[in-house]
Amino acid sequence: MTEYKLVVVGAGGVGKSALTIQLIQNHFVDEYDPTIEDSYRKQVVIDGETCLLDILDTAGQEEYSAMRDQYMRTGEGFLCVFAINNTKSFEDIHHYREQIKRVKDSEDVPMVLVGNKCDLPSRTVDTKQAQDLARSYGIPFIETSAKTRQGVDDAFYTLVREIRKHKEKMSKDGKKKKKKSKTKCVIM
């Protein structure tokens, strides 16, 4: 069974824990209790493949930012979460993405942009803004509501699919490099 290491990042209060708990335990946590770091595991079937999701729910508070490099190193894919009623959390996505790329030393890291709290009427981040940002990053965008469960499975499952595509691409690139290195030079 394939294991996928997913990391949920975003500013404090955007609903990272609520999304994760909704996926794992099928219930909505409405009281806000700032996370330092929590880890969850769940076995699911995605596109006919049974897999184990190892999900790291991270601290959004700035005082825990020193811990970010460590979990970013171990993560295979990242859910970059903002709240649709919090423009600052949307603007912060850029910083999370840049930090992930720096730590992973790669421009090509599996990510999904997630606009959470889409059940709320007080939207300050337009869907088109988020779609445009995701398009500019070359990553999928999904709106979710941890409260109603809308888009929750889709967000995590899409990230797994992005990781699969990335692994497939990397193995193809690896095979191309191996083929090239088999060419021999004969000096007579």
Rank of each mutant, 00 (worst) to 15 (best):
G12R: 07
S89R: 01
A59I: 05
K178M: 14
L52A: 13
F82E: 00
D54Y: 05
D57A: 06
I24V: 10
F90V: 12
V125M: 12
A146L: 07
G15H: 00
I55A: 08
A83T: 04
P140W: 01
D108Q: 07
V81P: 02
L113V: 05
M72H: 07
D30R: 10
D173C: 03
E49I: 03
R102D: 02
G75Y: 13
Q70D: 15
V14C: 11
G10W: 00
D33P: 10
V14N: 06
K182D: 15
K42A: 08
G151Y: 03
Y96A: 03
K184R: 10
G15E: 00
K169M: 12
R68D: 14
D38G: 12
T74H: 12
V112E: 00
R123D: 14
G77K: 00
K180V: 04
Q99T: 11
I84L: 15
M170Q: 09
V7W: 07
E76D: 15
V125K: 10
I46S: 06
Q99L: 14
K42G: 10
G151P: 02
K128T: 14
K117F: 15
S181P: 04
C80K: 01
S122H: 11
D154R: 09
Y71N: 13
Q43A: 06
M72C: 08
Y32F: 11
M72L: 11
K180M: 12
L23N: 15
T144L: 15
Y96P: 01
R149D: 09
V9N: 02
S65P: 13
T35A: 08
Y4C: 08
D69A: 05
Q99E: 13
E3C: 10
D119H: 01
L23P: 13
V160I: 13
H94K: 15
V81T: 05
P34A: 08
H94I: 02
K5T: 02
N116M: 15
Q99S: 06
Y32P: 09
V186S: 15
C51G: 06
E62Y: 06
I21N: 15
A134W: 04
L79R: 00
R102L: 05
K176Y: 04
R135I: 03
R164K: 15
D38W: 03
E63T: 06
C80P: 00
E91L: 01
F78R: 01
K182S: 14
I100W: 06
R97V: 15
Y64K: 13
L133V: 08
V7I: 10
S181D: 15
S17I: 03
L113W: 04
Y4F: 12
K179L: 14
T50E: 06
C80A: 03
D47K: 03
E3V: 08
D54F: 01
F28N: 06
R102W: 01
K180T: 10
I36R: 07
K175V: 08
V44W: 04
I139P: 02
E143C: 06
E63Q: 08
T148S: 11
G138D: 11
R164M: 09
Q129T: 09
V186H: 12
M188E: 15
K180E: 15
G12W: 02
K104D: 01
K104N: 06
E98M: 01
K117L: 15
I46G: 05
V29S: 11
R102V: 03
T183S: 15
R97G: 03
E31R: 07
D47C: 02
E162S: 04
R161Y: 14
V114M: 05
G151M: 08
E62A: 07
K16N: 03
A134F: 07
T50A: 07
E168H: 08
K167N: 11
A66M: 06
E63F: 02
S39Q: 05
D54W: 01
T127S: 13
V44L: 06
R123P: 13
Y4G: 05
Y4L: 07
L113K: 00
K104V: 10
K178A: 14
K180N: 14
S171I: 13
I24N: 14
S39R: 10
R102T: 05
K178T: 11
K178Y: 09
I84Q: 15
R164Q: 08
L52D: 13
Q43N: 09
E168K: 13
A18H: 04
L19C: 07
Q129S: 10
R68K: 12
K117P: 00
G138E: 03
V152L: 14
G151R: 03
I163W: 01
R73K: 10
T87C: 12
G12D: 10
V186K: 08
E37G: 13
T144M: 14
T50S: 07
T124F: 10
A66H: 07
Q22A: 03
K177Y: 11
L159Y: 00
E3L: 04
V14Y: 01
S17C: 03
L113S: 01
I142R: 02
T2G: 12
K101C: 06
K176P: 06
M67N: 11
L159V: 05
G12Y: 04
L52T: 14
A155D: 00
C118L: 07
K88H: 15
S122K: 07
K177R: 09
S65C: 10
R97Y: 15
A130M: 09
R161N: 05
T158M: 07
G10T: 00
E37V: 12
R41V: 06
V114C: 05
V125T: 11
I163Y: 02
Y64G: 15
T124R: 09
F78L: 04
G12T: 06
A11D: 06
K88G: 12
R73M: 07
N85Y: 13
R161D: 13
I24K: 14
V103D: 08
F28M: 11
H27T: 08
G48P: 04
V44Q: 07
V103Q: 05
S39H: 12
A11W: 03
K169R: 14
D108P: 05
G13M: 10
E98A: 05
E76C: 15
T74R: 09
A11P: 09
T183I: 02
T50D: 08
Q129M: 12
S136P: 01
S181I: 13
G115T: 02
P110L: 01
F28D: 10
G15N: 00
D38N: 11
D108V: 05
D38Q: 01
Q61I: 07
I21S: 15
V114Q: 00
K16E: 03
K182L: 05
I24L: 14
T20Y: 05
E63L: 02
V125H: 07
M67T: 14
H94N: 15
L23Q: 13
K16R: 11
A83Y: 01
V160Q: 02
H94L: 12
I24S: 14
T127I: 12
M188P: 15
V9H: 01
R135M: 08
S136Q: 07
K184M: 04
K182P: 14
V114N: 00
F90P: 12
C51D: 06
I84E: 15
L52Y: 12
L56F: 10
L53F: 07
G13I: 11
F141D: 01
D173Y: 04
Q150K: 15
I55M: 09
S136R: 10
E76G: 05
G151T: 13
D105W: 07
S65Y: 05
V9G: 02
L159C: 04
A134H: 02
G115Y: 03
F82G: 15
C118T: 08
R97F: 15
T74S: 12
L53V: 12
T124D: 14
I21F: 13
K165T: 02
V81W: 00
S171C: 14
G77A: 11
N86C: 02
Y40W: 08
D126M: 08
D105K: 03
A18V: 03
Q70K: 14
G10V: 00
K128A: 14
S65M: 06
L52K: 12
T58M: 05
Y71S: 11
L56S: 14
T35L: 02
A134C: 06
G10K: 00
T148P: 14
A130V: 14
K184H: 13
K104I: 05
R73Q: 12
V45S: 11
I21R: 15
